[in-house]
C-alpha cells in the first residue's frame, strides 16, 4: 500500500511528511519527524502523555491517524517555549517541582495550557476535571494542580 502524503503546520512551521495509513500522529511525530517530546504512555487514550492540540483542540495524538492531520494545524510541547524563555507553566512546574520522572509532564503542560487559554481563572475542581485524562505515577497530582493554579494567577496578574 502506498504511503500517504500529508501537509500540515506543526508549531507554526509548514510540514510535509509521508505516513503509513495506520500510523498515528504520535508515531509520526516521534518516529518520522523526531519530535519526541510527546510521550507514549498507553497508546489507548488513557494517560494523556501524548496530548497535543489540533486546530487548537486538545486531543490524544495516539488516537488520531497521521493521515487525518492533512490541512490541519498541530501544536506540540516543542512549540511551547519561546526561543529564549519558557512558558510560564513550564517555569512554574520547575520552580514548584511539579514533576519527578517527567514522562507525564509534556502532556500535563499541553493540557494545562489549553485549559488556561479557555479559562484563565479556573477553580481547583475545574483544573482537576480538565486534567483527569492525564495520569501521573509520581507526584500525587497535588503539586501539578497547585502549579497550574499559581500560573493562572500570575498570568492574570501579568495581563492586567
Amino acid at each position: 500500500m502506498a504511503k500517504i502524503h500529508v501537509s500540515t503546520t506543526i508549531n507554526g512551521e509548514p510540514t510535509e511528511f509521508l505516513c503509513d495509513p495506520a500510523d498515528t500522529v504520535l508515531d509520526t511525530l516521534r518516529d518520522t519527524l523526531g519530535l519526541t517530546g510527546s510521550k507514549e504512555g498507553c497508546g489507548s487514550g488513557d494517560c494523556g502523555a501524548c496530548s497535543i492540540t489540533i486546530d487548537g483542540r486538545l486531543v490524544c495524538s495516539c488516537l488520531v491517524l497521521a493521515a487525518e492531520a492533512d490541512g490541519h494545524e498541530i501544536e506540540t510541547i516543542e512549540g511551547m517555549a519561546g526561543s529564549d524563555h519558557l512558558h510560564p507553566l513550564q517555569r512554574k512546574f520547575l520552580e514548584t517541582a511539579a514533576l519527578q520522572c517527567g514522562i507525564c509532564t509534556p502532556g500535563f503542560l499541553m493540557a494545562a495550557k489549553s485549559l488556561l487559554e479557555k479559562n484563565p481563572d479556573p477553580t481547583e475542581t475545574e483544573v482537576r476535571y480538565w486534567l483527569a485524562g492525564n495520569l501521573c505515577r509520581c507526584t500525587g497530582y497535588d503539586k501539578i494542580v497547585r502549579a497550574v493554579m499559581e500560573t493562572a494567577a500570575e498570568m492574570r496578574e501579568g495581563a492586567r
Binding site: G45, R57, L58, S114, L131, G133
Partner: peptide
C-alpha cells in the same frame, strides 16, 4: 465520555 482529550474527538 472520557477526558478533555477524548471530548475533542
Amino acid at each position: 465520555i472520557g477526558s478533555t482529550q477524548i471530548q475533542g474527538r
